[in-house]
Amino acid sequence: MLELKGLEKRYPTGDRALRGVDLVVPQGQVMALIGPSGAGKSTLIRCINRLVEPTAGSVRLGDLELTRLGARELRRARRRMGMIFQEYALVERLSVMENLLSGRLGYVGFWRSWFRRFPAADIAQAFAILDRVGLTEFVDKRADALSGGQRQRVGIARALLQDPDILLVDEPTASLDPKTSRQIMRLIVELCEERGLAAIINIHDVALAQQFARRIVGLRMGEVVYDGPPADLTAEVLTTIYGEEDWSRTIRREDEEEEDPEAARDGTAEEAGGPPAPDRERLAGMT
């Protein structure tokens, strides 16, 4: 459904953030994009909805070529791509509902959005999604009054309200604690399954990527160096993506894979599988 061909980005400073990325994401697939900082993960997903303009290559969403769209058609196309951000990127001084409804801005005219007079269907949908992410009682709270996990739920709800075909997710858990991170990742994956959405999830945390994505793509220096199932992510593969390091304790062990799913739901899976790993992985990713 989403198809990148020879995608390149060269910044005015001369940095080549992407060096010819080819990638196909079929409908309904949740894909994790891993790689060290500066590998081009953020640039890649921003080149898809053209928050960053790609220098060369093509991006096709369905049968629409995104790189050649004019301003108006681009806005129309962006409605089909929900984006979720690392620091939530909520408008802090607006209420939860206003933040949610901003997901409908691509569908309503200026004056309607100015007076916050959204169509009744949009509002009904917003309440339904708010209920789904468990934040109904926060509807009129200001976004800056929420905790990190709650804010990210609002971020997810805003993206869903766009009624997208694909989610572009940029480090959704980087500002969250390990337990909330797992809850947020589970929520994103569940919602994608419910709605048949594809997703590209940029993520530092290799263990989280393995736990929740069905496909993992490794990016290094703007090039795809791994593309395969989470189970094939061996120490050698991690070395190709991130460079030399002791990966033996990062890789998910067999006994963890056969774990009782209920235990994982309580957030105890991390403790069961040895010391909580995320910090170490994040350090490895920072280098």
Binding site: R75, R79, F85, A89, E98, S102, L105, G106, S113
Partner: peptide
């Protein structure tokens, strides 16, 4: 905060809507 502007632009908002939703609340 530029990320708020980015988030609103990513929804398909027009320039005027971006000013109204992402910039105005921050400077009001």
């Amino acid at each position: 905060d530029r990320s708020q502007v980015e988030a609103i632009r990513a929804t398909g908002a027009s320039w005027a809507q971006t000013v109204n939703y992402a910039i105005q609340p921050q400077v009001l």
